[in-house]
């Protein structure tokens, strides 16, 4: 009986941990591989778009440097 209880507890903890991991996993949203046909932009429409930033950010000057420290 004791073994059965331990088995059930262990299984419950394992399943709970698995669910926690699955829920926590980052679901990467689909990424447009190019700019859309949109002409109107807000700050966010660029800063949440990896493709747009990758295309435009190299032209932003000093901030293009790497880290040291």
């Amino acid at each position: 009986m004791l073994m059965k209880n331990n088995f059930l507890k262990t299984t419950a903890v394992f399943v709970f941990a698995l669910l926690l991991i699955l829920v926590s996993c980052e679901k990467i949203p689909p990424l447009s591989d190019n700019l859309s046909d949109e002409l109107d932009f807000t700050c966010e429409s660029c800063h949440i778009n990896e493709a747009v930033l990758a295309q435009l950010a190299p032209d932003t000057g000093e901030d293009a440097g790497g880290g040291g420290g």
Binding site: E26, P29, I48, L56, A64
Partner: peptide, 13 residues
Amino acid sequence: PLAPWEKVYIKLV
């Protein structure tokens, strides 16, 4: 170091 675009990227998940 981070790539220039990474520094200002707000990644949604």
